[in-house]
């Protein structure tokens, strides 16, 4: 039986810690979000750990000041609070001044199970990718988390790093580093239908692929882990090899992951039947946890398989040959 996956935050903090021990310029700021690995860090390197209080705005401004003085800074908090709460600080202090700070968010999407709209972060891709100078990365397993962390330590830039709250099973087998430059990587080859996803939903895409395979439909699953800067030309060239392009995200459809892909394809003149699968345009108050909310949103594995089957069915194909207008489904 496979070992329980490590929490992404522990992977990141342990990697950062190993480097911080050798380099006092590495500083870690947490707005009151802990981790087991962070306790070790705080105890061993107290001068390199900063707790600003539950103060995301000040945390980002302070990070900008520290980065101005040559420090390599990671800021760390729950996804919901390190994005929308301090959006203006991200824009002004890090974006407009282009400060090389890594903004680490934990629990993107519906990651904070049962917590409701205050903790769900379903708009961070749309909001953050709108900022010039930012890079937006979403790891999907331990290896990708580690490699992206190393990149952030060794080549600091204004990066937004979207961590899952739980640990996720391994996707990469030592091949993530070589894929980093491209920004996307085919993780499960298949037929003519392409599913692009990232993070938590990449695993759901892989589950959907298994189900579809049992039903006789082969699909390819590709991890688009860097949504900004998006390798538009390469992505469009890659997508043009498929008959259908499907995006799967745990984000609002307005301006999110699928929007970014659609923009890239349109800008590169690639017209493909496209289906953007994501969350409906509402807040989520219902109890029952992440899986339940996804089911209710039409993003359960069986429902997704059914939607993809319908979308790619021969009957739909003639319709889909019409000049491409990205298709979204609302509930």
């Amino acid at each position: 039986m496979a070992a329980k996956p490590k929490l992404m935050r522990d992977v990141l903090i342990q990697e950062f810690y190993a480097r911080a021990r050798k380099d006092p310029r590495l500083l870690f700021i947490s707005a009151d979000l802990g981790a087991e690995s962070l306790d070790t860090f705080r105890a061993d390197l107290p001068r390199q750990f900063i707790h600003p209080g539950i103060c995301e705005q000040n945390m980002i401004d302070v990070a900008a000041g520290l980065a101005s003085a040559g420090k390599t800074v990671f800021t760390y908090a729950m996804a919901s609070f390190i994005t929308a709460r301090c959006y203006e600080q991200l824009k002004v202090a890090l974006g407009a001044m282009n400060k090389p700070v890594t903004v680490v968010s934990v629990g993107v999407g519906l990651g904070y199970d049962d917590a409701g709209p205050t903790h769900y972060t379903t708009e961070d891709i749309a909001c953050l990718r709108a900022l010039p100078n930012i890079e937006v990365w979403t790891p999907c397993d331990e290896e990708s988390t580690r490699e992206i962390t190393i990149e952030c330590c060794e080549r600091p830039a204004f990066r937004y790093l979207r961590l899952e709250r739980p640990g996720l099973p391994n996707v990469y087998q030592g091949n993530f580093r070589s894929a980093m430059g491209a920004g996307f990587c085919e993780v499960a080859p298949g037929g003519d239908v392409l599913i692009l996803s990232s993070g938590y939903m990449l695993h759901r895409a892989l589950a959907v692929r298994e189900q579809l395979r049992m039903e006789g439909l082969e699909v390819t699953v590709t991890d688009l882990f860097r949504i900004k800067p998006l390798a538009s030309r390469d992505l469009a060239a890659y997508a043009s090899r498929f008959s259908h392009v499907i995006t799967l995200e745990e984000q609002c459809l307005a301006g999110g992951f699928g929007s970014a892909v659609a923009e890239a394809l349109v800008d590169q003149g690639v017209a493909k039947p496209m289906l953007r699968l994501g969350l409906p345009d509402r807040y989520f108050f219902e109890n029952g946890g992440r899986g339940h909310v996804l089911e209710k949103s039409g993003l359960g594995v069986s429902t997704l398989a059914q939607r993809i089957t319908e979308f790619t069915a021969p009957a739909a194909r003639s319709r889909n040959r019409l000049p491409s207008v990205p298709q979204s489904v609302s509930f």
Binding site: N58, D61, V62, A64, G65, S68, A69, A93
Partner: peptide, 20 residues
């Protein structure tokens, strides 16, 4: 030493500089 035009950023940025 820092961008201005939006209020409430300078003291935090300067705090980071002073801490460094």
């Amino acid at each position: 030493d820092a961008i201005s035009g939006s209020l409430g950023h300078g003291l935090g940025i300067a705090s980071g500089m002073c801490l460094a």
